[in-house]
C-alpha cells in the first residue's frame, strides 16, 4: 500500500530517538541522531514531511522529547548535558549535567517535571518551568538506566541487571520540592515499586500504557513482557511475555533485540520495532498480534505514534542491534505510515 513513505531528508547518521509532539493537533516530531543533530520534522497533509529545524549539539544526541508545547524540546546528549531547546529561537539551556552520557529524557506535563537518566546511574529530576523554586534533584539508581517511560502518574526506569524501578510522579514532585535544601540535592527516595524484569536478558526499551495501567518492556533477546502497575496478585498474575522479532535461519532461530516499544495513544495497542527491521503491532490485552509490517532495510531504531494516533513514524538505522555497523545506502531512514482507522485497532471479539 502506498500508506508508507520515507522522508526526504533523514539524518546523516544513526538515529537514536524519535518522538512525536504530545500535542494532538500537531504532526511534528523530533529526531535525535548520532550525527550530533536534533531534527524537527512535520508531516503535512499532502504526504510531505518538512524538515523544520536542525539543532546542533556538541556530541551525539541520545534522546529527545517535546516539552510543554510544540516549540520546546528537551535533549539528552552524550556530552553529559540535559538541555532545553526552543525550536523557533534555537535557544538552548543546560538543565543539568550528569557524570556520564545522558541516555534518556522524558517530560511530564501533568507534574511539570523533566526527568533524565544517565549512564552514571542517576536520574535527574528537573522542574519543567525555568522559574521553578527548586533545583534539580538527583536520584541514585542501583544500575545503569537503559530506558525511561512515563505514564500520567508513574515513572518507569528500566536498568541494567534486569532491575526496574517504578516511581510515583506525584511523590517525586513533592519530594523534590521538599528537599530543595538537601545536601547536594541528593534525593533519597524509595521507588514506589522495585521490580525485577520478567525478561532474562538486558532490557532494551520500556513504554507505559496510555491508560496508566501498566507497561511493556522489551529485551535484547527478542522478547516482550507486558506487566501491570497494580501490585495486587490478580493484576500481577496477568503479566506475560512473548517472543517476537526472531527469524529462523536454517535450524537456528536468529533473535533480534526489540529496540523500541510504542503504545498507541488511542487504541492502547502497541508497536514493537526489532533489530530485524520489522515493526509489529500487538494487542496487549487480547495477547494477539494485530499486524506485522514488511521488513525494512535495517534495524528499527525508534518509533512513535502521533498524538492523534493517525501516524506511525519509524526510524531505521544500522547499529549493533542488527549486527550491521556500516552505513549502507538507505539504511538510515524515517518512514511515515498513515494508519487506517482500523489498522492498529484491537480486533473486535
Amino acid at each position: 500500500m502506498s500508506a508508507q513513505w520515507d522522508i526526504a531528508e533523514p539524518p546523516s547518521d544513526a538515529i537514536s530517538a524519535l518522538r512525536f509532539s504530545s500535542d494532538s493537533a500537531s504532526r511534528r516530531f523530533a529526531v535525535a541522531s548520532w550525527d550530533k543533530y536534533v531534527y524537527i520534522y512535520e508531516v503535512s497533509d499532502d504526504k510531505q514531511c518538512l524538515l523544520l529545524n536542525k539543532i546542533e549539539h556538541r556530541a551525539p544526541v541520545l534522546d529527545v522529547c517535546f516539552g510543554k508545547d510544540n516549540d520546546e524540546i528537551y535533549t539528552a546528549c552524550l556530552d553529559w548535558d540535559v538541555r532545553r531547546i526552543q525550536i523557533s529561537s534555537n535557544e538552548q539551556t543546560v538543565l543539568s549535567t550528569h557524570d556520564a552520557g545522558v541516555r534518556n529524557v522524558v517530560y511530564s506535563k501533568e507534574h511539570g517535571l523533566v526527568i533524565s537518566a544517565a549512564w552514571d546511574s542517576t536520574v535527574h529530576v528537573h522542574p519543567a518551568s525555568p522559574d521553578a523554586e527548586w533545583p534539580t534533584a538527583t536520584i541514585n539508581l542501583p544500575s545503569k538506566p537503559f530506558s525511561l517511560s512515563l505514564s500520567s502518574s508513574k515513572l518507569v526506569v528500566a536498568m541494567a541487571n534486569r532491575a526496574l524501578n517504578i516511581y510515583e510522579l506525584a511523590t517525586l514532585a513533592k519530594e523534590c520540592k521538599n528537599s530543595a535544601n538537601a545536601l547536594q540535592n541528593r534525593l533519597d527516595i524509595e521507588p514506589w515499586q522495585r521490580r525485577e524484569s520478567s525478561l532474562k536478558f538486558m532490557t532494551r526499551a520500556v513504554d507505559c500504557m496510555p491508560g496508566d495501567e501498566g507497561y511493556a518492556t522489551s529485551s535484547i533477546e527478542g522478547r516482550v513482557a507486558v506487566e501491570w502497575f497494580d501490585p495486587s496478585n490478580e493484576s500481577q498474575a496477568r503479566k506475560y511475555a512473548f517472543k517476537c522479532h526472531r527469524q529462523p535461519v536454517d535450524d537456528v532461530d536468529v533473535v533480534y533485540p526489540v529496540n523500541s516499544i510504542a503504545f498507541h495513544p488511542v487504541h492502547g495497542t502497541f508497536a514493537t520495532g526489532g533489530g530485524d527491521g520489522v515493526v509489529a503491532i500487538w494487542d496487549a490485552i487480547a495477547k494477539r498480534r494485530i499486524r506485522i509490517y514488511p521488513k525494512l532495510a535495517s534495524s528499527i531504531a525508534a518509533m512513535s505514534f502521533s498524538a492523534d494516533g493517525r501516524i506511525l513514524a519509524t526510524a531505521i538505522s544500522p547499529g549493533f542491534e542488527d549486527g550491521k555497523e556500516e552505513l549502507a545506502e538507505g539504511s538510515i531512514a524515517i518512514y511515515i505510515r498513515e494508519l487506517g482507522e482500523n489498522e492498529v485497532k484491537k480486533k473486535a471479539k
Partner: peptide
C-alpha cells in the same frame, strides 16, 4: 530451537558501545 542472539552482550547496551566508538 537453538537460538542466536544478534546482540548478545547482556551488560552493555548498544548505545554504550556506539558511544565508545572513536567517531562518537
Amino acid at each position: 530451537k537453538p537460538t542466536r542472539l544478534v546482540y548478545s552482550d547482556n551488560e552493555i547496551s548498544p548505545e554504550e558501545k556506539m558511544a565508545s566508538m572513536p567517531k562518537y
